[in-house]
Simulated scan of single mutants.
Amino acid sequence: MTNSTFNRPGAVDLSALAQQPAPSGRRGTRNSWVMEVDESTLEATIRRSLQHPVVLELTSSRVPGTDRLAADLAGLANAAEGRWLLARVDCDAHPQIAAALQIQAVPTVVGLLAGQAVPLFQGILPHDDIAAVIDQLLQAALANGIAGRAEPIAVPDDPATAPVRDARYTEADEAVARGDFAAAEEAFDALLRANPADSEARLGKVQAGLWARAGQVDAAGVEARLAADPTDAGAVLDAADLAMVQGRAAEAFALIIGLIRTTVGDDREPLRRRLLDLFETLDPADPALVKARRDLATALF
């Protein structure tokens, strides 16, 4: 993302946030709990293990059988739907990670809990044996109070089966690709004015608007504003936007709903509208969204 407005002092660098889980459930994507790790994302991956278990797969395509191991681990991770996250390291491309973790042979699979490495196994195991080892890791996580769920990662559908993108969205899509989310929002808005029933343009406008707003937010400033006045609606909305683009949807929803609970009359409406916009960026079946809808109904009535 090269838009210069993302590089001003104090602003959130969305080029870094692109490594974080993005709001999922968009058309043309599917949810996954498998991510690739390199030197720039290893530390953040380790930090994730403070909330939920992470399984670190250190592998090499030069070793026979690793494709089967990778498929088994990915299948188990996606079937668990967030109970743990699979983080994959290509040791051929990133030998520094293997050296730092003192890996003697690949493939090696390591568990991460509360920032600590837990050796799981080396070599290639049968599917059922892998599942049993990971079950032990999950039991250890629960025993240590680590019971969070990993946010899903939106990954593109297979291009061979994905639907062809309508040419009407080209201008907006190109703006998104170059990181100009304000221009993308305007382009999607123009499509909506021409056809208010265009659900694809509506979703695109909401998502682009979210990233455009977040790109202008001073994260430290928002924290200070909330500390000074937790009922500052602007600060709450800014904080919620940041949480959303960083993959913390449940936190974003809780911030806004918490303020709605203490707000009356017309002051509630901007909060409610923003919350509904953020709802649109997630899959309707997402657990964070399902809970937030219930919480909103309670807060309003």
Rank of each mutant, 00 (worst) to 15 (best):
R273E: 13
D92L: 07
G179P: 03
A228Y: 01
G265V: 04
A183P: 06
A285W: 12
L296Y: 02
A132L: 14
V176G: 03
V110N: 06
R293I: 09
G215W: 00
I103C: 09
A11D: 06
R62Q: 11
A254T: 12
V217S: 07
S32K: 01
A71Y: 01
I130H: 00
I130L: 10
M244G: 01
V290G: 02
A249N: 07
A233H: 12
V236I: 09
V34P: 08
S60M: 12
L69P: 01
E36D: 13
A219D: 13
E186R: 13
V89Q: 07
G115R: 12
D166K: 08
I97N: 02
L210G: 00
P156M: 10
A154C: 06
Q246R: 12
H127R: 15
T59W: 14
L86N: 04
G258P: 01
V164P: 04
G247F: 00
S60K: 10
R149T: 10
P9A: 07
G265Q: 00
A292K: 05
E185K: 12
N3F: 06
A243V: 03
F253Q: 01
A183W: 08
D166L: 02
A147I: 07
D266N: 11
L76H: 11
A131K: 07
S61H: 11
T5R: 15
K291H: 14
G25M: 11
A79W: 04
A131Q: 13
R261C: 04
T161W: 03
N144M: 10
A220S: 12
G234D: 07
A16T: 14
S40I: 09
V55R: 02
A100G: 09
D128L: 09
D158T: 01
E81C: 07
A249C: 07
R48S: 09
L73C: 02
L271Q: 05
L300T: 09
L120D: 01
R273C: 07
T161P: 02
A105W: 10
D166W: 04
A250K: 09
R193W: 06
A240Y: 02
E251N: 07
D266R: 13
E269F: 12
L278A: 01
T5V: 13
L69N: 00
T45F: 05
A150F: 00
W33Q: 02
R83C: 08
A197Q: 15
A160V: 03
A114V: 08
V236Y: 00
V133H: 14
D180M: 05
A114G: 15
P119D: 00
V12L: 15
L142G: 12
A184C: 03
E39W: 08
L113W: 02
P23M: 03
A141S: 03
V106T: 13
G204T: 04
Q102N: 13
G179Q: 03
E39C: 07
A208R: 03
E81I: 03
G10F: 01
A249L: 12
D72W: 08
V155R: 09
A292W: 05
A183E: 13
F6R: 14
A167W: 06
A117R: 15
A227L: 06
N3I: 09
P23H: 05
A98G: 15
A212C: 02
T41N: 04
E39D: 14
Q207R: 14
R165H: 10
A117C: 14
A228G: 03
R88K: 15
R48Q: 12
